[in-house]
Design a protein around this nucleic acid. Structure first.
Lengths: 345, 345
DNA sequence: TCGTTTTTCTAGAACGATTTAGAAGAACGA
DNA sequence: TCGTTCTTCTAAATCGTTCTAGAAAAACGA
């Protein structure tokens, strides 16, 4: 049983290893009779087909696309937005009979080289919301692996599928400005607050470029408003809850809270419920992404076509017919009941 | 730039390839001074570290765990239940610095050997709700890849993490029986109905062992009830909707509908809403899994600890300290407003 | 000082396939 | 009949590592 290789089969059939290889990969290179004899013998010997690693090594194709996620991999699955992206990507991957390799980013030391990004056998990579300048990106670049990011990069030769963050946020900002809001808290994903207390940040401390751009877009559209940036931790319901609690229980209550993702906004919604605050009346709440739960919650948000984003990334990575390397996807302001006029005082 | 390998670096530094390899993998096998010189030279030459495929080939470790999903990979992401499983699995994978390889199951021809399961460079595999007897399972077995299934298999040496399907369904069945239901429709995931019209199936046609067991469990707990099995397609909201429409618009309305997953039940809920039927009063509705949306929808369901299931599978696959190979997880009936007494007539 | 252990490094053989270039024979056209 | 083209198969090189032994040098204990 142990050590049944191409060679074993070749010897058993009485042909060269090349022929056995061809039997699997290039059926038209040998007679059907021989091919069937080879396959039969292989079956008999318990040969499971060409070894994946060896094939990958020799042919230079791994048959897999890597996916890089922000922080903890497990978080990725708690955000429907990320899941939507994956669904789109998976759709295209499936079409091209390619697997998806989800790589953990955190944990192991990057410098030592013992990390997943270094070790991964992949042909290309999708980069989902990884902050620019992250060491993993450099590793990918060093390895010469083609990558597509969900954020617009600074390098002109980088591929990306993104939205106009500033413009998208500005749409929301205009909406809020028109409603008379001038005191706004922006809830962001931030590692600093992860384990402990909620923190108030400056724009420079935000870290993620896309978040920065969104905040800039908001500010641009509501120049008279005071924007405060608060984080309760990573991108999760609980963090939105914590961040909102911090804000709602302070002396300095805003008239509007904007979650930079729906997940954060939904967390804030829970904090409001607990305090008996009705969204859209007592306080305006808005999010970003338009995940399914946003509509049931009546959350005003900026919709982005996340599944299409995943598909587009997949096409750029896998479909040779796709030549466009940088794609701007449309966004749309979805107004629901959670936003209303700022209370006068 | 092209072709910078271990050898290139070795030659540049003036040491043997083995030493360069050790610099990356066994830092304690060489002096720190030399190691640093090697790493520096590597950097300089643009060497990105040992090639993943070559390493995998030689060392026999791919550093990845495969995940096998029912049918379309993209479907997996539309079901919060599957996503929850992935989250748990990802958590453990992360801990062991292992990547997750999601393999598309359908599309390409299994026999030809050009499919993902055959090609995947993985050390182990998690099998999520793949019907027994699926060719992919045989391929895995042939390749000698250790696997853990989310369904109890028939082979005693197979590893699995599962629930007692019969018992779990029986809990729900008792609840329904106590409420007086005798006309029940069970909504199942089925490929037959995928593209076209909803179908009514016999128990033998269901296909998935776990579904069969659940139906048996229901029947066991409510021996006097008539159970009909209906499918509107794959495991998705739309399928539940279609299946329920078919049932609700027929002459032969049941008093209770049981979705074999919450996703299917939620689809049925939509069909009821459209028809002005209140769950728990006009018709009883129940599901399986207890996904987050079930609680907001007030859906009676059978909870299973899905994230723990994912974690347990991960442990069996990756953690040498875990010796238990077959694990039965607890389930719990969660009664919510969607179930009520059967209308008397 | 001399044998012994430890540290540091190397040679060369795998690992299991695919690829390139080409050989042998069959089939073909004129 | 002879040169040409196909079809079918093969030999040998190669992909880029890691591993197994073991050599050379340094450190050690008595």
């Amino acid at each position: 049983m142990p050590g049944v290789t191409l060679k074993t089969v070749a010897k058993a059939v009485g042909v060269s290893p090349s022929t056995v290889s061809n039997a699997y990969n290039k059926p038209d290179q040998l007679s059907t009779a021989l091919r069937e004899r080879i396959l039969a013998t292989a079956q008999e010997l318990g040969y499971a087909g060409p070894d994946a690693s060896a094939r990958a090594l020799r042919s230079g194709k791994a048959g897999a696309v890597g996916v890089l996620f922000t922080d903890k991999l497990a978080y990725a699955f708690s955000d429907p937005y990320a899941v939507g992206f994956l669904a789109g990507l998976a759709e295209v991957a499936e079409e091209f009979a390619t697997s998806l390799l989800l790589m953990p980013l955190s944990s192991t030391d990057i410098a030592g080289g013992s990390n997943a990004v270094q070790q991964a056998a992949i042909d290309a990579a999708a980069i989902f919301c990884v902050p620019g300048g992250h060491p993993a990106l450099e590793i990918l670049a060093n390895r010469g692996i083609p990558a597509v990011s969900t954020d617009r990069g600074d390098h002109p030769d980088l591929s990306w599928v993104a939205i106009d963050e500033v413009e998208a946020a500005a749409q929301l900002g205009e909406h809020l400005a028109r409603l008379g809001h001038r005191e706004v808290v922006v809830l962001v994903d931030n590692a600093q607050a992860a384990g402990g207390r909620p923190v108030e940040l400056t724009l420079d401390e935000v870290g993620y470029t896309d978040c920065e751009l969104r905040i800039q877009g908001l500010q641009k559209a509501m120049p008279d408003a005071r924007l405060r940036i608060v984080s309760g931790g990573h991108n999760a319901i609980a963090s939105g809850l914590k961040g909102a609690e911090f804000v709602l229980d302070s002396q300095d209550r805003p008239t509007a809270i904007v979650g930079l993702s729906d997940i954060l906004a939904l967390g804030a919604l829970e904090a409001m419920k607990v305090r008996g605050l009705t969204p859209g009346r007592d306080l305006t709440l808005a999010g970003f992404d338009d995940i399914p739960a946003a509509s049931t919650a009546g959350l005003t948000t900026v919709r982005q076509p996340i599944k299409d984003k995943g598909r587009a990334v997949g096409r750029i990575l896998l479909d040779p017919a796709t030549t466009e390397r940088q794609l701007l996807m449309p966004t749309q302001l979805i107004v629901r009941s959670s936003s209303g006029p700022a209370p006068k005082h």
